[in-house]
Computed example of a mutant assay.
Amino acid sequence: MNADPSFAHSPTAPPPGAKAITLPGGTSLWLLPQRAVWWPAARAAFVADVHFGKAATFRRAGQPVPHGTTADNLARLDEVLAVTGAEHLVFLGDFLHARSGAADALWQQLQPWREGQAAVRMTLVRGNHDVHAGDPPEALGITLVDEPWQPMEGVEVLACHHPHSVAGATVLAGHLHPTATLYGLARDSVRLPCFAWTPGLVVLPAFGAFTGSAVDQLPPGTLRFVVAGAQVRRL
């Protein structure tokens, strides 16, 4: 594999605010400000770590967390599909947060949304939270697979939840909830979600509206692309 990631310019118009990257072998991906990856050749969009039901799980534990996160997540998924025209939506793990959050109220929101996007094929690559929370209902029409999973035959791009190396392939993953801290004047700082890219691995930011971020576990030399409002920008 080529040891140096390279940038690309798509021959077609990119989604607004997106940043293009080219993988070894010539596969073009777009990093979207909606915290998703768009793979035009596969007509597929990828998101990671939605964590549906997380806020409800916290409320059951007596924590004063906000309402409306499910509606926010669904509205932003609709935006990803509208911006890309994707025919396939791939969840890179942690679709659900916990079994306690997988309540009827959640399915009553997800089912109408899924019916409204019935033309879109959907696949969930199970993550660590999905293993404990259980699979979503069959009525949602989401295909369930385990990692590593190959979305497009003949192209060495693998969909996973956990970041890891696979010889000769590029892995799209989540799990780490990567962020980058930007510093300004007078000790000001802001933490923004980011994409992380090293040879053979692209880690997506957490998509969910109530997910937080983890301690930085990215290796030295990782290229970071921050989601700054409606733009993706390379640091």
Rank of each mutant, 00 (worst) to 15 (best):
8 A>I: 00
9 H>E: 13
10 S>F: 09
11 P>R: 11
13 A>E: 15
14 P>E: 12
14 P>I: 10
15 P>A: 08
17 G>F: 06
17 G>N: 10
17 G>R: 12
18 A>N: 01
19 K>Q: 14
21 I>W: 06
22 T>F: 01
23 L>S: 11
25 G>F: 05
27 T>Q: 13
29 L>Q: 05
29 L>H: 04
32 L>I: 09
36 A>H: 13
36 A>E: 08
38 W>H: 09
40 P>G: 06
41 A>M: 06
41 A>Y: 01
53 G>M: 07
54 K>N: 09
55 A>V: 12
56 A>S: 15
57 T>R: 02
57 T>S: 14
58 F>I: 13
65 V>D: 01
69 T>S: 04
70 T>Q: 01
72 D>E: 15
75 A>V: 10
79 E>Y: 01
82 A>H: 12
87 E>S: 14
87 E>V: 05
93 G>D: 04
93 G>S: 07
95 F>P: 03
96 L>D: 00
96 L>Y: 09
98 A>R: 11
103 A>S: 12
104 D>I: 11
105 A>N: 09
108 Q>Y: 06
109 Q>V: 10
110 L>F: 07
112 P>T: 00
116 G>T: 05
121 R>Y: 03
121 R>Q: 12
124 L>E: 02
126 R>S: 07
126 R>Y: 00
127 G>K: 01
129 H>N: 10
129 H>V: 13
130 D>T: 12
130 D>R: 02
131 V>A: 13
137 P>F: 00
141 G>K: 02
142 I>S: 08
143 T>F: 00
144 L>V: 14
146 D>E: 14
149 W>S: 06
149 W>H: 13
149 W>Y: 14
149 W>P: 00
150 Q>P: 00
156 E>W: 02
158 L>A: 02
163 P>G: 05
164 H>E: 12
167 A>I: 01
168 G>Y: 07
174 G>Q: 05
175 H>Y: 07
178 P>Q: 03
180 A>Y: 05
180 A>I: 15
181 T>C: 08
183 Y>G: 02
184 G>V: 12
184 G>P: 05
189 S>N: 13
189 S>H: 15
195 F>M: 11
205 P>Y: 06
205 P>T: 10
206 A>R: 02
206 A>C: 02
207 F>Y: 06
208 G>S: 07
208 G>Y: 05
209 A>L: 01
210 F>K: 04
210 F>M: 04
210 F>C: 05
216 D>K: 10
217 Q>D: 14
218 L>A: 02
218 L>P: 08
225 F>H: 08
227 V>S: 08
230 A>T: 13
230 A>S: 15
231 Q>L: 12
